[in-house]
């Protein structure tokens, strides 16, 4: 495949691993900032704000919420770094600037992973060093072509101890040229459509199931010759080879026979991670269904669940399952 970016890619590759910084924080970690943060986030963990509680804990004092780490060294709105920061020099060109110059002017944040090594407490003085950890090959994405860039931010305290790391991944890309539609402004609603789940393919053998869901019913196909229930549905009964069939409405009660927590691909219509179960219904058939009202790490095999018939968008209604709490 043609790649006309060899020179650009070589220049970008030279920036990998170059340390930039430290970028300092404006103030030492302090209780008012922590309180602001907790109020904004709705986090009432007493380790962050309740002095008495925290003093009696094994930490012996207040700790800052770990996820606050990025805010501590953030530049202000004027892009001015905090006093004492060491700025990027000409010998440390920024890969995102290179991509801008090469026409990859659009940017989207892909994901951000933080890892914490020790607690940050009031009085700590936090700085960070930034390096470019990796740059992908040229990718062709649904947004356009571009490069994934992973930045590694290493947060250190006043004793030069690493307290946290953050990997921040961006896609710098060019949008396809089709974007200009002169004269159409205002004529149509440009409201973006909500991302939709992939659709099932309907045919004569399965349409009843999807129609049933739209009517609020979870249906199971039944052989009218031998009464065996079956899912997925099929024209012929695998037990007695009869073509005669009807349906029964499931109670919706079942147990998790197995499950996954889907991380990749993170599709926009779904939570990330997305817990999905193979549910065994009390009638004996199994079906695959997304789980709702549960944290992915809490899903267990054998867990009782019940169907929640859910209209996902204008066209699609699904039986999702929710844990039975008793």
């Amino acid at each position: 495949m043609e790649n006309n970016n060899k020179e650009l890619e070589a220049r970008m590759a030279a920036t990998i691993g170059v340390e930039v910084g430290p970028q300092r924080s404006w103030d030492p970690v302090n209780l008012p900032m922590i309180c602001h943060w907790c109020q904004a986030m709705g986090d009432d963990n007493p380790m962050y704000t309740n002095l008495e509680y925290a003093e009696q804990s094994d930490q012996g004092s207040i700790i800052a919420p770990p996820t606050m780490i990025q805010a501590l060294t953030m530049k202000g709105v004027t892009e001015t770094p905090a006093p004492g920061s060491v700025s990027r020099t000409e010998e440390q060109p920024y890969v995102l600037d290179m991509l801008d110059e090469a026409g990859y002017v659009s940017v989207v944040a892909v994901n951000c992973d933080q890892e914490y090594f020790s607690h940050v407490k009031p009085g700590d003085d936090i700085s960070h060093i930034m390096t470019i950890e990796s740059i992908s090959e040229l990718k062709h994405t649904a947004l356009g072509e571009g490069y994934f860039v992973t930045e590694l931010w290493t947060f250190i305290n006043q004793d030069n101890e690493k307290v946290a790391e953050m990997r921040f991944r961006l896609l710098k890309f060019k949008t396809p040229q089709q974007a200009q539609r002169p004269g159409s402004a205002g004529s149509q609603s440009n409201k973006p459509k909500a991302p939709q789940r992939p659709r099932p393919g309907l045919n004569r053998d399965n349409a009843f199931f999807w129609k049933g869901l739209k009517q609020g019913k979870l249906l199971i196909q039944r052989c009218t010759s031998c009464q065996t229930l079956r899912h997925p549905p099929s024209p012929m009964c695998p037990s007695c080879q009869s073509l005669d069939k009807d349906v029964v409405e499931a109670s919706g009660k079942g147990v998790v026979h197995s499950f996954v927590n889907l991380h990749h691909p993170a599709l926009p219509a779904f939570d990330d991670p997305n817990p999905i179960a193979l549910v065994e219904l009390e009638e004996g058939t199994r079906l695959v269904a997304g789980l709702i009202n549960i944290e992915p790490e809490d899903v267990r095999i054998g867990m009782p669940v019940k169907a929640e018939i859910t209209q996902c968008d204008d066209e699609l209604t699904l039986a999702l399952f929710s844990p039975v709490t008793e």
Binding site: G201, L262, H264, L267, I276, A289
Partner: peptide, 24 residues
């Protein structure tokens, strides 16, 4: 993940999975 809804057997079969995100 980008499969269009179709009526043929094998595509329709994946209809039991892909609307829930079980696509790979």
């Amino acid at each position: 993940q980008d499969t269009q809804a179709q009526a043929d057997f094998e595509t329709a079969h994946y209809g039991w999975y892909i609307p829930h995100g079980l696509v790979t």
